[in-house]
Amino acid sequence: MKARVHVSLKPGVLDPQGKTVGDTLSRMGFSEVGEVRVGKVIELELEDGLEPSAAEARVKDMCEKLLANTVIEKYEIELA
């Protein structure tokens, strides 16, 4: 089983990287681009046979304790 964790800055937290990417895209002629936010994706290989709900609870615990800093970041968990 795999878990994919998407970590990104919370709404309202200024994202200087996203802003720079957005500015560059618009300078390159991609005028349809509005706000850009840069995040990260963390893929975790989990042992087989885990109940999805149990796996999700464990990954949530990992996010709270290490994978995300919930002062500034939010996260979404995807199991596959």
């Binding site: 937290v13 200024l14 200087p16 990287q17 720079t20 800093n69 002062v71 500034i72």
Partner: peptide, 17 residues
């Protein structure tokens, strides 16, 4: 210290990058 919770808040990338 902010990561451990001993101090509040977080340190982000410099605004200038």
């Amino acid at each position: 210290l902010t990561e451990t919770g001993l101090l509040p808040g977080a340190l982000m990338r410099n605004a200038s990058l």
